[in-house]
Write a protein that binds this DNA or RNA. Structure first.
Lengths: 367, 367
DNA sequence: GCTGGCACTCGGTAGACTTGAGTGCCAAGC
DNA sequence: GCTTGGCACTCAAGTCTACCGAGTGCCAGC
């Protein structure tokens, strides 16, 4: 299991690690652990009786004052226990916890999932959200690899009606994109076939970003169809270039937060797939990582923590899996689940792609 | 606009319509209208001052007692106003409200939507949930037509790698289904092409339900590929036969209900697409209709009302649009929105299908 | 520098009281 | 006989008070 990025960074911005002596760290750990479990402010006597803390409650109290002064803890009000701040959670995640390992039951669930899933990538990614939700009880997001490096394997123009056809494009990563084409006049199958042949001839083997370049065939009718197909081709761009986002377990959000307003705003964010992708890509950067509270800059998610793990295919971070929970989330568990699932997804995608990206196949995908 | 089904049914089960004289009906209407607006129990004096009620509050009170005896209203507690029961809403919907019409702004939104959407059916249905949510502020569900009557237009086996290929099936309704095929040994493009030709020859023009029937080609290698494609073909069955379900605006649920637990359980239902489809199909039956509270039999949705409108293509109810809100939902508005959107979707699908289902095209979709 | 002790703080709970919206009932009136 | 105004009654919700206890901050002693 990879360690969390930047453990005890040498250039810690505010001297975070220096701020806390071991005792303070263990007290902070106890507070965070307890609060994650109970969601109640944690008092000094609870902390004093926690394993790993060997001092009296009075000492704990004075240390807590220091922790509060430095912004790791807050009191909801005088004479209440302390709860961790985002900074407190951050310290906990960065210094006090190993990513954790899945329990045997969870491990079995993961294995069962990957044994059983032998289907298309989209389906696999979609179901992976369900797996993550099941493992952690948090809402899950999976972002699939984009298609922009894939090459075109085949183009086909299939007639659906006298004046309607379907342009079907198959990419080397197994993605299939389609778009209807409408004509002004009837178009015969033979013209469609010739058009298809022409497209294959000039576009197969190209990457998507290469764009549309099909020379005139010399036949007016075919050229008209090709032009129409070109328009359809351009329209595909948006769906090809946009990432594939899958969201799972939104109902878990309603378990994570008690304020219905929070649930609403988080759900709203999840509905905006672009935001979700941006967020995950932002957070990703440095491998397995966590964004707590407002660190990511999205106001409505201020009471959320996001755990993100990369999905690496052939060493490249092509996708991501994310877990969305309250800031008082079970970080070790969530990190472990995201890490394992992301890794296994990557392996799976890798093996599926190994043959596909090879140069072994010629470009004449038509038949 | 079609009237709601079974107005004043002659064989009303408990003599519902007979139970209520016009005055009681207008009082019930006032209570429901007021309660939908305020979510507060409605007192007799409010009702007395409502338009359409020309009697004093004392008379209203005595009528309310009768309405409560007959199960149309309940009091949360003595000395509180009344709120409608599910039966009260049912009477309101069946007898007291016309489906309503969209406001000019909403009408423009619908027109704008259908002017602008010129894309694939899936995309259109998906976006239609957004439209419905925007029109009504309720969560929306759209169920697309299933593919079981569509015929196969084209089959293609595209090589992705030396030992991996993709079976791509195009249906007459414009749906494209795909599945990867893995081989034990390397398979050349020419074999794939011959396999594709064979599949086209024997399966194009068939409906999906007809199943797989491809005779031996005489070539062992081709036959092996065909067999593998057959397996893939069978695996597609599930995704082809299952309905297409699109859910929109789940965050609106968090606006509709204040109890986070209710939000959770309703979200959970929405995650189970099969349940949603079953529910909508059940409710559908008699055209534009409403299911209130427990009428549909799903416990977790007891505090919900579901408005369902059919999406008719060529006179057949092939799909449905649904709106999910609290029982105190704006029925006229929701009915109007569902009706209009369902109707326009049907028209759009119809026009797209008109050419597609025709016999004008031969079966040799290959080229 | 740690610890036990002690006074203090303040949210939460429980009970008493008040308020006001709303009811049910009844006698008078149309 | 239905309708109405009047009246006593009910009860949730808000306010006030007192009290409890978890928890703190501080301090003197070890």
């Amino acid at each position: 299991m990879t360690p969390i990025a930047d453990h005890v960074a040498p250039d810690a911005p505010e001297g975070d690690a220096r701020d806390l002596n071991p005792r303070q760290a263990s007290i902070l750990e106890a507070v965070v652990t307890e609060y994650i479990g109970t969601a109640e402010p944690v008092g000094s006597s609870h902390v004093a009786s926690a394993p790993g803390v060997e001092v009296s409650s009075a000492t704990v109290r004075s240390e807590m004052v220091a922790l509060e002064r430095n912004g790791y803890l807050v009191q909801p009000h005088t004479s209440a226990g302390r709860i961790p701040t985002d900074k407190g959670y951050r310290f906990f995640v960065d210094h006090l916890t190993e990513p954790g390992v899945l329990g045997p039951i969870q491990h079995r669930a993961v294995s069962a999932f990957f044994d059983q899933v032998h289907v298309e990538m989209e389906t696999m990614l979609e179901r992976a959200t369900g797996l993550l939700t099941e493992l952690t009880s948090y809402a899950a997001v999976v972002v699939g690899p984009s298609h922009d490096t894939a090459t075109i394997r085949s183009l086909q123009v299939v007639g659906l009606g006298p004046m309607v056809a379907l342009l079907v494009v198959v990419l080397s990563d197994g993605a299939v994109e389609k778009r209807t084409i409408e004509f002004e006049t009837e178009v015969s199958d033979s013209v469609l076939a010739r058009c298809g042949a022409l497209l294959n001839e000039h576009l197969v083997g190209r990457t998507w970003t290469f764009g549309w370049s099909v020379p005139s065939s010399g036949d007016d009718e075919v050229d008209r169809v090709v032009a129409a197909a070109g328009t359809a081709f351009d329209l595909m761009e948006r769906s090809i270039e946009s990432d594939q986002v899958f969201v799972g377990g939104p109902s878990r959000l309603a378990e994570s937060f008690e304020a219905v307003e929070t649930v609403r705003s988080v759900l709203e964010i999840l509905e905006q797939q672009l935001v979700v992708v941006t967020l995950l890509r932002d957070v990703l950067g440095r491998g397995l990582s966590v964004s707590i509270g407002t660190e990511h800059g999205y106001e409505p998610l201020a009471s959320c923590a996001v755990v993100v793990a990369p999905v690496c295919v052939a060493g490249q971070e092509l996708g991501a899996v994310g877990l969305l929970g309250p800031t008082r989330m079970n970080y070790p568990g969530a990190l472990a689940a995201a890490h394992v699932v992301g890794e296994r997804l990557g392996e799976r995608l890798d093996s599926g792609r190994a043959g596909a990206s090879g140069e072994g196949r010629g470009d004449d995908g038509r038949h």
